[in-house]
Amino acid sequence: MNLVDSFEKIRTTFFWRRCITLPDGRNVAVAILLREDDWRALDAPWWRGKQASIIGADVDGNFFLRHCDGSVLYRDHNAGTVAPVAPGIREFAKLIVEGGDSVA
């Protein structure tokens, strides 16, 4: 099984009603998940960490990043923070569920 099979299934199945609960308990609505073929190394003035790729974004424009160690991070632009979400893509995909009306 490909490393990102479960991610691709989530990416193509739930369409626009996806949400994820972050480790701090916040629920965020996922706006987009990029195809693996579109993951590129991030080159942005605000990113000072090791190599990472944008793999998705929430409805507020915050990014989900795949770090070079394989983990998935959440970049909150308003807070200026980066927080771990999952140790890998498979675990990240398992956190994404169909959203309800409370997720905007």
Results as ranks from 00 to 15, higher is better:
Ala41His: 07
Leu34Gly: 08
Gly25Leu: 14
Ser71Leu: 13
Val30Tyr: 06
Phe64Thr: 05
Gly61Thr: 01
Gly25Gln: 15
Ala44Phe: 02
Asp69Val: 14
Leu73Ile: 10
Ser53Gly: 10
Val28Trp: 00
Asp69Phe: 05
Asp60Ile: 01
Asp24Asn: 14
Lys50Trp: 04
Val82Gly: 00
Ala57Ile: 12
His77Trp: 06
Ala57Lys: 07
Ala44Asp: 08
Leu42Phe: 04
Ala83Ser: 13
Arg75Trp: 00
Gly80Ala: 04
Leu65Ala: 11
Leu33Cys: 15
Asp43Leu: 05
Leu34Thr: 12
Ala44Tyr: 01
Arg66Ile: 08
Arg35Asp: 13
Trp47Leu: 08
Arg26Pro: 08
Leu33Gly: 14
Gly70Thr: 15
Trp39Asp: 09
Leu65Phe: 07
Phe64His: 06
Val72Leu: 05
Gly56Cys: 09
Ala79Cys: 06
Gly80Gln: 02
Ala44Thr: 05
Ser71Tyr: 10
Val30Pro: 13
Ala44Val: 05
Val28Glu: 06
Val72Cys: 04
Ile54Met: 11
Lys50His: 12
Ile55Gly: 06
Asp38Val: 00
Ala29Gly: 15
Asn62Trp: 02
Asn27His: 14
Val28His: 03
Ile55Lys: 09
Lys50Gln: 14
Asp38Gln: 07
Ser53Gln: 10
Val30Trp: 03
Leu65Arg: 06
Gly80Val: 03
Glu36Asp: 13
Cys68Leu: 15
Leu65Glu: 08
Gly49Arg: 00
Trp39Tyr: 11
Ser71Gln: 13
Leu33Gln: 13
Ala83Thr: 06
Asn78Cys: 02
Val82Asn: 01
Arg35Trp: 13
Gln51His: 09
Asn78Ala: 04
Ser71Asp: 12
Gly61Lys: 00
Ala83Ile: 07
Asn27Ala: 14
Asp37Leu: 08
Asp58Gln: 04
Asp24Met: 10
